[in-house]
């Protein structure tokens, strides 16, 4: 890569690294793993930078690569996440101590509850939720990123939200399904 290309690559990294890291964190629930995912994503982006720049699609390429890296990583047995907060009798129960609305952001248990709940979801389902409700992508955009049909994104979103609702112990997420 020529230095001039490295300059534009550096600009992209400076501008977008933190956002990628946050998305990676919501996908995997661990800052260290998120950093690994972003590092691998950006290394792949570097290799493809000239091509990506020509298409003026750095954001899209980085997002798609991050997703692939995350999904690929989630298949590796030595890195698979395990939900830790399950009932000792083996049944699922609401995670954490708060019984309030999960949108109660002042509750320090909320963050842990959300991440634990997300960790219970299959990788692609989790990715759908993060892309739809964190990255604000449309159903069609998510379908394109995940190489599936729009209907699949909708059904995965509904299932993911159902699952979150079950795990978070609240019914308020049900409202969101109506907005799909």
């Amino acid at each position: 890569m020529l230095k001039i290309d490295e300059g534009s690559y550096r600009e992209f990294v400076v501008a977008r690294r933190r956002a990628l890291l946050r998305t990676a964190y919501l996908l995997c629930g661990d800052w260290h793993l998120a950093e690994d995912l972003v590092q691998e994503t950006l290394a792949k982006l570097y290799v493809a930078w000239r091509r990506v720049r020509r298409r003026d699609d750095a954001d899209g390429y980085a997002r798609r690569t991050l997703l692939n890296v995350y999904i690929d990583n989630s298949r590796r047995p030595w890195r698979r996440e395990h939900a830790t907060d399950t009932a000792t009798d083996g049944s699922r129960q609401t995670v954490g101590v708060s019984t309030g609305d999960p949108a109660d952001l002042a509750d320090p248990g909320v963050r842990h509850r959300l991440l634990s709940a997300l960790a219970e979801l299959p990788a692609r389902q989790r990715a759908v939720l993060v892309l739809r409700f964190w990255e604000d992508l449309s159903v069609e955009q998510v379908a394109d990123l995940l190489n599936c049909r729009s209907g699949t994104v909708k059904s995965q979103t509904a299932r993911g939200l159902d699952r979150l609702r079950d795990l978070l112990g609240t019914t308020t997420l049900a409202e969101m399904k109506e907005q799909l």
């Binding site: 490295e6 919501l26 590092q39 409700f133």
Partner: peptide
């Protein structure tokens, strides 16, 4: 809860950024 509330929930979850974010030079 609506779309915005869940987004806020996500935003809250990422408020604790890692102490040492990666450097662009290292990425290069």
């Amino acid at each position: 809860m609506n779309h915005e509330r869940l987004r806020a929930l996500f935003a809250d979850a990422v408020t604790q950024d890692p102490p040492s974010p990666g450097l662009p030079d290292d990425d290069i």
